[in-house]
Write a protein that binds this DNA or RNA. Sequence first.
DNA 1: GCTTGTGAAACCGTTCACAGCG
DNA 2: CGCTGTGAACGGTTTCACAAGC
Lengths: 219, 219
Amino acid sequence: MSEQVDDAARRIPEASVARLPLYLRALSSLAEAGRTTVSSEALAAAAGVNSAKVRKDLSHLGSYGTRGVGYEVDELVQHISSALGLTRRRSVVLVGVGNLGHALAGYGGFASRGFWIAGLLDADRSRVGETIAGVVVRHMDDLDEVVRAGDVSIGVIATPARAAQEVCDRLVAAGVTSILNFAPAVLQVPDGVDLRKVDLSIELQILSFHEQRKSGIPA
Amino acid sequence: MSEQVDDAARRIPEASVARLPLYLRALSSLAEAGRTTVSSEALAAAAGVNSAKVRKDLSHLGSYGTRGVGYEVDELVQHISSALGLTRRRSVVLVGVGNLGHALAGYGGFASRGFWIAGLLDADRSRVGETIAGVVVRHMDDLDEVVRAGDVSIGVIATPARAAQEVCDRLVAAGVTSILNFAPAVLQVPDGVDLRKVDLSIELQILSFHEQRKSGIPA
DNA sequence: GCTTGTGAAACCGTTCACAGCG
DNA sequence: CGCTGTGAACGGTTTCACAAGC
């Protein structure tokens, strides 16, 4: 029939999507260093992957390289940003301003790529009113209003594990369609809601496995 | 008594290893709830995966289930802990006690699974001497001694990106063979050193991609 | 009966290697 | 010539489906 989608950005494999932010970061460094073009080999080195992967990944966005030369840095930044949806500002609500929530709120990672903290929420009223990274902490009950007012689509959960599922449910009910979970809990979300998780304890256990592997084979 | 390296723990696929901590957590909940046996179906539900995966994963550790019944919870906890090398206490050194380092140090995830913070280090002398989670912050120059005295094999990097590679190099030089990096930087490590990374900004960008996907296809 | 354990099939991602093009 | 873009081979992971066994 017909390709109704404008770009070739139709179906980018998940593994490629996960690497695009890496390329973006590497390209920013290259641009700052004054480079205007970059080969797949050089970009691969800067991003810590191999060049075949870079070329395959970029080919999913379309053919923006020049054979014999490489890729134009600025152009590539535009295409990747566009593919990742970073041309539009994305609002985030962060729930749970304990130690971790504090750290996340203050992390440069938010502002640096066009993410904006539309709200910091906590269920503990003694924390409400505090200002973190220029944002005043509000009570969890204000969730609906914060999501609506800020056009929030991404929620970050930094609560204790026992509260995580309820917070998740409330985020979904409020209209959030992407969730990043830092609580050590398995969360259930309905279809159509994306869920990613970051878990320190699991990462350490995976490293422990490899440590054991290494020490177990002295021969 | 000391049952050496677990019999069938020969070659566990990486994807399975990454799920074992999930099963461990689910099994702990089940044990607390009084369950003594569990089917692959029930464990799958608790861990947020499907039952075929659970059975395949567990089969890599050996055959510890009973057909028609399921798995013995306590026994399974033992086998998984053993496979992950969690029967031995693992010492960790955490470098960088800024916002994120503070949060990580205070996170329950360390102590809960047999990880022990052997040292908190920072390059900023104004932070040295502070006590976090019962551990006194020492200067980065004490790294070698901390690693030696604590028999540390795992290093956690929670520094700014610009300092990360140097900290990484120093950790490796001190004898650390597994590194968990929270800094938004691509790190190089020699063969034999395991490196994992956690990156808030990348996770948000991946969610942004899916948000864009969702809003882009109203059909 | 119910549930495990596992070959086989389907799927996805990575790597290879080279044709095609500037 | 150098480097991209890509079909094809490869290796790992997930899913299926069912025989084996309590």
